[in-house]
Design a protein around this nucleic acid. Structure first.
Lengths: 126, 126
DNA sequence: TCCATCTTCAACAATATGGTTGACAACGGG
DNA sequence: CCCGTTGTCAACCATATTGTTGAAGATGGA
């Protein structure tokens, strides 16, 4: 279920330490130990954070001897962006429609039907 | 601190019910009672959810007699998008650089500078 | 005024989260 | 073959989250 996936992604990013790790991994892959260096917590705690990120699909781990290099899975960002953009556009459209109604109430427009334009997509702005 | 703000936003959206409410509010403002209708939980629980969304800055509430109409604050999405896009682009650039290096190893490109773009971060991997 | 409606507050229970320490599996260098 | 390094697993503790119920504040209608 995509719902669950989104929940796990957002929950993973709700922690500042984990967001920081994502920032670090955007620069380049890193082992768990390397990820742990900046922080004042046990390596087990960092391992847990990585697990949360991996479960959310934000990070994948490979094997290099004892090391587990972590790799940022950038495609997940697309999923988030899609979710966000959907509602942003929807809310924005709503404002534009409200503006139209207000304009009509002021009497400066020709009487357009009050039925909202069925599909006015983003491009129409300006 | 923006850090805290982001944490609150992501945490708020980690809950499917709250994401659902955001979807509902993208269509138009709604009172707490209206928001509660689709769900099989107490109105107090819904009130709490709204509070979480409001604390995160995703929702604002006004007053209409006993009602508290909820309004989606779309600007917050910009903050999220900014955060996401930053790391997505960073990761993407990294891939492009990797591609360049691989191309060079194959010997098909002129030697581009290997100096990475000026994004400084704390403990770069060795 | 009295009352029904809408919402929030307070206290509680169950569960999830993030940290700790200790043990141990896996691996490569001497 | 040992042994140090790297990372995960397990058990545990403190706190946060999410739901419940009961009470109460605020408001407009009869």
């Amino acid at each position: 279920m995509t719902e669950d996936r989104l929940s796990r992604i957002f929950a993973a990013l709700a922690d500042p330490t984990r967001r920081d790790m994502v920032a670090r991994l955007a620069v380049g892959d890193a082992t768990v130990g390397e990820l742990a260096e900046p922080y004042d917590v046990s390596i087990q705690a960092v391992s847990k954070h990585v697990k949360v990120l991996a479960t959310a699909g934000l990070v994948s781990q490979s094997k290099d001897a004892q090391r587990r290099p972590c790799h940022l899975e950038a495609e997940v960002f697309d999923l988030m962006t899609k979710w966000i953009e959907r509602y942003r556009h929807q809310a924005q459209e709503r404002y534009e429609r409200l503006d139209a109604v207000l304009a009509e109430m002021r009497g400066d427009a020709q009487p357009t039907s009050l039925v909202p334009p069925p599909i006015a997509h983003q491009g129409a702005a300006s």
